[in-house]
């Protein structure tokens, strides 16, 4: 589904991703962990198509297509979803108007008629249940005045609504209390299907108690330095990132002496 090969990304001349590789297949849940500044959010943004980053080299293939050639809205229409670490507040744009526009643009992309008002409202009600989102939130402007937890729930709600093939969740757990965390995790689990996949980016292992990953990758200094099963996440929680840094540091030294 998603193949990233030797990806090098920089912003304002500063290298962030340095030879990043990842392969995600349908039905899989990947967790990407790593200390602050390792490049986790950059990875998410580049996959979604944020243009403030420069892709210096490398390939990203999504469903057989060159993802880097596609504008962000097309990526979304083709089933890619980014759950933002910091969802943007957009005063004046109602959630209802936003979601209705989004779903109908996607339907148009696939040659489908727009949803009628009735069909749309029915879909909204259905999806609201998945994330236990309160009705009042969908009546407000996008994320405006939402608490941290509400914003993250709203991301999962949008994900439920747009039914992506590949969801990238960027630190969806940050700033959540345990109840909100459960709601978010339940939402992600409920949406899991054999033909879709998700990449969960997180700093802590906590979220992975609720979303069980098939693979855990450790990102450090712009590339994956260790991959493993969910046990790796538990090890990280116990030992912290220091040993990873040491291991990676040894490798770096080894490289530089070559």
């Amino acid at each position: 589904m998603l193949k990233i090969k030797d990806l090098n990304v920089s912003i304002n001349g500063k290298k962030i991703l340095k030879g990043f590789n990842l392969e995600v297949n349908a039905g899989e849940v990947h967790a990407i962990m790593g200390p602050n500044g390792s490049g986790k959010s950059t990875l998410a943004s580049v996959i979604a198509g944020r243009d403030i980053f420069t892709v210096d080299s490398g390939e990203v293939t999504y469903m057989g297509k060159n993802l880097l050639d596609m504008p962000p809205d097309e990526r979304a229409k083709e089933g890619l979803f980014l759950g933002f670490q910091y969802p943007v507040e957009i005063p004046g744009v109602s959630m209802i108007n936003f979601m209705r526009t989004a779903i109908n643009e996607k339907r148009k992309h696939y040659g489908l008629e727009p949803l009628t008002g009735m069909e749309f409202m029915k879909l909204m009600e259905e999806k609201k249940k998945i994330v236990e989102i309160q009705s009042k939130l969908t009546n407000r402007s996008v994320n405006e005045g939402f608490s941290g937890g509400e914003k993250k729930k709203n991301e999962i709600f949008q994900m439920a609504f747009l039914e992506p093939k590949l969801a990238i969740l960027d630190e969806t757990d940050s700033g959540l209390d345990i109840d909100a965390l459960k709601v978010v995790a339940n939402g992600v689990n409920a949406l899991k299907k054999p033909d879709n996949a998700s990449v969960v980016i997180t700093h802590y292992q906590r979220l992975l108690d609720y979303i069980v990953p098939d693979f855990v990758h450790v990102l450090y200094d712009g590339r994956i330095v260790k991959s493993g099963s969910k046990e790796l996440a538990i090890e990280l929680e116990e030992k912290g990132y220091e040993w990873i840094k040491k291991e990676a540091g040894i490798n770096e030294k080894a490289e530089s002496t070559e």
């Binding site: 944020r50 957009i90 005063p91």
Partner: peptide
């Protein structure tokens, strides 16, 4: 970008933001 990431094209996203303003 937030709007683009949900599938709204450049034109639609701009219109939506102007309307909101």
């Amino acid at each position: 970008f937030y709007l683009h990431s949900r599938g709204l094209c450049e034109k639609t996203a701009r219109q939506l933001l102007m309307y909101a303003f």
